[in-house]
Write a protein that binds this DNA or RNA. Structure first.
Lengths: 148, 148
DNA sequence: TTATTATATTATAATCTCTACAATTAGTGT
DNA sequence: ACACTAATTGTAGAGATTATAATATAATAA
């Protein structure tokens, strides 16, 4: 059984267990998110599924991405004023973002529990989670720059 | 000489050195950012300076926050679809954000150079910087919850 | 100090992302 | 297949930010 199929099945099980109905649109959005390596925006997804669902509304995409986020299936990544990007949650990982072309690449790093503890201790907050991203220039864009 | 005055003078020097004109509006926005402990939104700043500059345009606030960001004087903090918040850059620090009331509190932590190095090594990116935030519930909101 | 010139400000319209709403359609358990 | 409830659709609208063009002003040099 392929990785994608596996992930999709688990995701559908999660939805069923949470009492969220499985519609063709939801199925397709999940499928697209799982096979996508590009951390798509809501609009990317909308456009990608236009062929299969000519009558689908953007609202449906947004609604379902919110549902998936609430159930913990996807993470919403927000960068500046541009559109949010959505990431199917498999294992915990962080992102490196190219400041020239916007490409997002995953990398793994042992959880920063220490930071959360320190923050909690210093500020008195009850900490729930954290977010971290690294910014820089991807190899391709670095080459571009050297050539010109 | 007070801390605030010091910071302001340095900021003005930076602008002069970069060839950015020092207008009354810019002066006021910087001043407000420096004395503010609240990480204001563009609109907060606009409203706060309404008294002093009845004719100032929102566009001016946005334009100048962008200029300040480009020069490295302020950092833009973005959270999903809500307004960006702006933070005068003094020393390096991170933020803890209350998920209930939105309050932002600073805390210090030794730079996560190690993460940047790992990310660079794994992905081949030239890393320029990173961003991290911790999320949770502030003491006040925690109390609120217990009472009810 | 004044004249010059590029830059900044203003006011407004427009754009872009996302959400609210009401009517219609369609899953799901019996 | 039925009934019940939730999901989808289409559209209008909110909120944040930016584009544009006309006007005003800071900085520089004469």
């Amino acid at each position: 059984m392929s990785h994608e199929h596996n992930d999709l099945q688990e995701a559908l099980d999660t939805l069923k267990a949470t009492g969220v109905r499985i519609t063709p649109q939801r199925h397709a959005i999940l499928e697209y998110l799982i096979q996508s390596m590009t951390h798509p925006t809501a609009d990317d997804i909308y456009k990608a599924l236009e062929g299969k669902f000519p009558n689908m509304s953007v609202a449906t995409v947004y609604n379902n991405l919110r549902v998936f986020r609430e159930v913990g299936l996807v993470k919403e990544l927000t960068y500046g004023d541009a559109s949010s990007r959505f990431d199917f949650v498999t294992t915990d990982h962080y992102h490196v973002i190219c400041e020239d072309c916007g490409k997002i690449v995953d990398f793994h790093y042992p959880g920063l529990d220490e930071v959360e503890q320190l923050a909690s201790h210093v500020t008195g907050f009850k900490v729930s989670h954290h977010r971290m991203e690294v910014y820089g220039t991807c190899p391709e864009c670095s080459n571009e720059k050297e050539v010109h």
